[in-house]
Each structure stands twice: as structure tokens, then as C-alpha cells.
Design a protein around this nucleic acid. Structure first.
Lengths: 345, 345
DNA sequence: TTGAAAGCGGTACCAC
DNA sequence: GTGGTACCGCTTTCAA
């Protein structure tokens, strides 16, 4: 059995106008809620539009008013990485929800052969939301800047301070995560950070070390590792950590990676939290269904996405916005942390 | 610190034409690889376009050629459900990859207040890919059909057989999953199916029951439950099953739900696979990092997405396509299944 | 090989 | 209040 496209007739504003014996202008006025039109005329027109399921072509309209009602969401990472990382799901979900509420469509863009700027050149989007760019993405930001399109970043870019962005208090997050463990009596606290190229990693590093120092604990480089924000990475690093360091607690800068960490611990026959306490970061949806449910830092990823859209749309509409918006974080205590217990003795 | 949108000058085809002292027609010809143009003229033009980062406006072009290079991906479910279910991630990933390869942009659409057809009426998309519509979505399909836009479904819709679709051999998948357990000596095999409204559920049900019958095992309705394809649902159902039924194996029609099932089993102090064997369905990315790694049915979700795009694009381009494309499935044996062991005795 | 002009489907200015 | 018309930026037909 084969199938082939069908012919399609499409109604235009001219069809509607002709049908009612009015001008295109009048139809346009009715459709756009203009004031200078007789209410009953408007009614008649709207009725006919509904009857034929007529809606103005977004292409024609966009060309006319130089606006598309579409925003690009650019994730400067490989598509596989993006779609397998729940953190991105979450922020994307927030973005979609908010865009929907504001009547915007989303064009999702990730790193492909250098043509991520095409949507801008081709006028497909009214603005760009750049998700968690890293320190190595400064050139990307510069190129976007050159196009002068409205754009917003969802992370802080040091040294590029005149760029509107929404970020999270990563320093505080790492600080309270570490202090939570310290308050439970832990001293040998491993820290598995995210990739160095993320600006959040630097902030979290400072939060972790400052928390230790503040409590008179020496910072030991051997307890610190850089992970790749995925499950495998957490798993591998933790196996090595447990063997070499025998920590009683670990702070992992990402829930997804923490999942791998927990797998490693449990596979080695150790119990969470009795033997080793684990604290994550992000509070992704999966955190509460892990086994046991993960204690973590909530950074309201959803809200980050929503806020990013809000700000971007404001810029698109010519409003003034504040350059930097910082979201708060908080500790969510679940079942992966408990009083220290020197299991290795 | 505040920020505001910047002024933006945009190059048009007329600018390029004027700069080079040629006509818009000529520029257009160069840009579209037409034959009737002097190679050196083309060169000069292309160079200038590159120099100014000029690319034709997608809006203007789309209006002219009545084509957008955009396809809509419609997921007839709530956005929260979609973004928390790895199955959708996977199929979406396949879709994005293929669309990218073919030069198409994606507009992601989910269920919102009845306006999912707007993108069609507004001419924002050249075609629609409908992800896993359920039996209760027949009205949606009919409305789409009325618009006569090219579209493809990623599931079989019984009684709507003239709709192009790409599906999976769910019957066979359920059959080999069940037979795998039977071959390990299991007789008391629970089956946690997906929602009734999915056409795949009916097929999997048949596969499960036929496998039992074929091996002389009676079908016991008490061993069968309908889950909601999420973690909680799997968790809850399995707790009850274990208490009431004391099965030695369970076949779960979705890896994500199987994750909840495994949590329940382990939380009750039983071991996987020693006490209870578990087989999933889908082979989502997470399956291999579960603890232990999940034995499951691979339904190449990624490929489903890719194939859906391929077919849709063919239809858009006026080609003939086959009405139905069925993808094969296969058993992936990992660590959650083993020989039967009557733990409850 | 190149260019002028019409047309795609809207919006908005300016008359009436 | 309503309508005629120019224009948004591109493609395409038809002439030259």
C-alpha cells in the first residue's frame, strides 16, 4: 500500500474578504482587535474565519510585522548529551511551558556543524536563549552579539558581563550542601565537580572549599575530582574514590552523576546512607525516585527556564530588563545522608 | 544594571544586488544553484553574501515557495508527562537528528488547550509527525486529516488504516520477552502493561498471553495489571503484586515503569534476578545503567523517530511512500533475569 | 545570461 | 468606519 500527499486549498485573508464583501484591511482589523471597526462587522468576520478555520499565515504576518513569535533555544552541546541529561529536560520543560503561556513557539537548536546561527540570519527567530554556555563558548556569544539579536544566557559568563542572563547561586548551593555533611559529623567529604568549562563549576568549587575552611577542615585535592556530568563518569570516579580514599561522604555536583555514584557505592557492598552519605545538586525529577531518594540542592531548574523566557520576551518587546537575575537554591534533605560512620575501620 | 534591545540592520537580497550592480533575480539564482548564471557571477555573489553573513529570510522565502522546511512534532500528551518519560526523549532525539540531516527544523507541540492545530492553519509547518497517538485520539487524527497536511503517525491506529505510519512489532516483542522468562523455568509471570488506550498495549497483551498458551501455561488475570508508564505506577503495582501473588518473574511493558518495579522489589528485601526476574520493554538509554542492568526488548526508538521523519519528508516532497513501516524488535539480555527460584517457599 | 515585474499573504498608512 | 495601495523579501515567469 502506498500513499501520497493530497492537494490542499488554503484560505487567505483575501478569500475571507471577498466572501463577506469587505476589504482585506477590514478583515485584518477584526483579526487584530483594532478599535476602528464596527463591532458587528468584526463579529461577522470572526465568525467566517472560525467557520473556515482560517488563521493568518505566520509567514506573511511575520514578514509584515517583522516578528515571528518564535524564540530559538540554543544548547551548545551535542544532541546526544543533551537528550540524555535530565537537567536539560527540566530546563527545556520550563522554557516550553513559559513560551506557550506567552504565545511563543520554540526552535530547539544544539551544536551542529557551525550553522546554529543560521536561524538568526534567516530570521526564523525573534530572540535566542542560550542554555548554560561554558567558558569555552565565548566565541559563540560574540557571534551572537554581532547579529544584535535579543538574547539571554542561562549561566553567568565571567568577563562578558554586559550580557543579560539568569543564573543560580551555585556558591551558596555548594556551601550548604557541604555544611550539611559537616553538620552530620563528616570530615572526609569527596567532591565530584562538573566539567571545568562550566562557570558553575568554579562557583561550586569555591562553595565546597569555603565550607570546609570555615569549619576548620583542610582542603585535600585528592578528595576532589572533575566529572563529565553523566552516570558513567560518576560511577567510575566513585569506584576509585572509595578504593583509594575511603570517604564517609560525597558531594556530587549533579544529580544525574550522583546516580552513577550511588550505583558504584552499592555495588561495592556499602550502604547509603549508613556507610556513605551522598548529596547531589539540581534536584532533577528523578532524584526523589532514586533508591534511596537523593538529598540534594534544589536549583529550580524549571524556573530558570521560565525566567529566561520571560526576560528574553521582554527584551524582544523593547522593554528594559535587569542584566542579571539570580535564582536562589535550597537544601532538600531526603534519604541519602546520615550521621558519619567510619565503615572502613 | 539594565539592558535593552539593540537596533538591528538587516541585509536583504536587494542590498546584495545593489552592492554588486546586478538584479535580485541574479542573486536569487546564485543562491539557489540555478544553472542559468555565469559561474563567475555566481562566485562574486556568493562571496558577498558570505561577507555580510547574508542568508535569505526564511519567511519571505517560505511565502514564495510555499514551504517552510519545518515539521511539527505533535505529542498528544501533557508536557510534564512527555518530558519526564525517557521514551519520548529517545524518539525526539531520533527525530531531531534526522530532521537536522535533511535540513528541517522542528516545532515541538504537545497537548495544550486545543490549539495544536494552529501551526497548521498558520502555515508554520510543512508536515506533522504525531507521536504514539492512542486509541482515544481518533478525533485528533481526523482533524489533522481534514487539513490535508502531510502527516505520519508513530503508532498503528486500528480502523484508521489509510494513515501513513511507522510502528513496531509489539506482539513479537511481548512474545519473546515472555518466552525468555518461560525458558528460564518461570511460570508465575506477572505482566504490567501500559495504558489501555495505547494500541501497543493490546498487541503486547496478545504477545504475552499467546506465549503463555503456546507453552501450556494458563493465563491468570490476577497476574496482569495496567500501569501508567511511570515509575510510581510500576512501584505501586509491584508492591501489591509481590504481596498478593508472589511471582517469580515480571514482564513490564516499559523500561521506565520497570525502574519503579525494581525499586519495589529491592525495597521489599528481594533480590533481582535471584528471587524475581524482570524484563522491560523499549531499551531506553537508562536501561543499561540500572542496578542491575535491565534485560529488555529493544524497539529501536531512535530509529522510529528517524524513520518517521524520512517518510514525512518524502510525503512533503510529493513522493510515494508505503503506508505502513514496521520496525523489528529484539531481546537484549542483561542482568535482571535468571533461572526460576521459588523464594517464597 | 540577465533583468523587470508580478505574486506570495499579510499590515498599515492615507484618503474618503 | 472602511477601503485602496504600497510594502515586507523572496521566487519565478517572461522578455530582452
Amino acid at each position: 500500500m502506498v500513499y501520497q500527499a493530497k492537494d490542499r486549498k488554503k484560505y487567505t485573508i483575501a478569500d475571507i474578504a471577498k466572501e463577506l464583501g469587505v476589504s482585506k484591511t477590514t478583515v485584518s482589523r477584526a483579526l487584530n482587535n483594532k478599535s476602528d471597526i464596527l463591532p458587528e462587522t468584526r463579529e461577522r468576520i470572526l465568525e467566517t474565519c472560525k467557520k473556515y478555520n482560517y488563521q493568518p499565515s505566520a509567514l506573511a504576518k511575520g514578514m509584515s510585522i517583522q516578528k515571528n513569535n518564535t524564540i530559538g533555544v540554543f544548547i551548545p552541546h551535542d544532541i546526544d548529551y543533551v537528550f540524555m541529561n535530565p537537567f536539560y529536560e527540566e530546563i527545556i520543560r520550563g522554557i516550553f511551558k513559559e513560551a506557550d503561556k506567552l504565545g511563543y513557539y520554540i526552535l530547539l537548536l544544539y551544536c551542529r556543524s557551525d550553522n546554529y546561527l543560521d536561524v538568526i540570519y534567516q530570521d526564523r527567530v525573534d530572540g535566542l536563549l542560550v542554555i548554560s554556555p561554558g567558558l569555552n563558548h565565548r566565541d559563540i556569544i560574540e557571534k551572537i552579539e554581532e547579529t544584535r539579536i535579543p538574547y539571554v544566557l542561562t549561566s553567568r559568563m565571567p568577563e562578558v558581563d554586559k550580557v543579560p542572563h539568569v543564573c543560580v547561586n551555585n556558591y551558596k548551593g555548594a556551601m550548604i550542601a557541604t555544611e550539611h555533611l559537616i553538620s552530620l559529623g563528616h570530615r572526609k567529604i569527596c567532591f565530584i565537580n562538573g566539567p571545568d568549562i562550566l562557570s558553575s563549576s568554579a562557583d561550586r568549587y569555591r562553595g565546597y572549599t569555603d565550607a570546609l575552611k570555615k569549619n576548620g577542615i583542610q582542603v585535600d585535592p585528592l578528595l576532589i575530582a572533575e566529572g563529565a556530568n553523566n552516570i558513567d563518569s560518576g560511577y567510575l570516579i566513585m569506584k576509585e574514590m572509595v578504593n583509594k580514599i575511603k570517604p564517609t561522604a560525597v558531594f556530587v555536583a549533579g544529580d544525574f552523576m550522583a546516580f552513577g555514584v550511588m550505583n558504584a557505592v552499592q555495588e561495592m557492598g556499602l550502604r547509603i546512607p549508613e556507610d556513605i552519605s551522598v548529596v547531589g545538586f539540581d534536584d532533577i525529577a528523578m532524584a526523589k525516585v532514586m533508591n534511596p531518594p537523593l538529598t540534594t540542592i534544589n536549583q529550580s531548574t524549571l524556573k530558570k527556564g521560565q525566567t529566561g523566557v520571560d526576560i528574553l520576551v521582554d527584551i524582544i518587546n523593547g522593554k528594559q530588563v535587569s542584566l542579571s537575575t539570580e535564582l536562589d537554591v535550597q537544601l532538600v534533605v531526603r534519604k541519602t545522608t546520615s550521621k558519619v560512620n567510619n565503615w572502613y575501620e
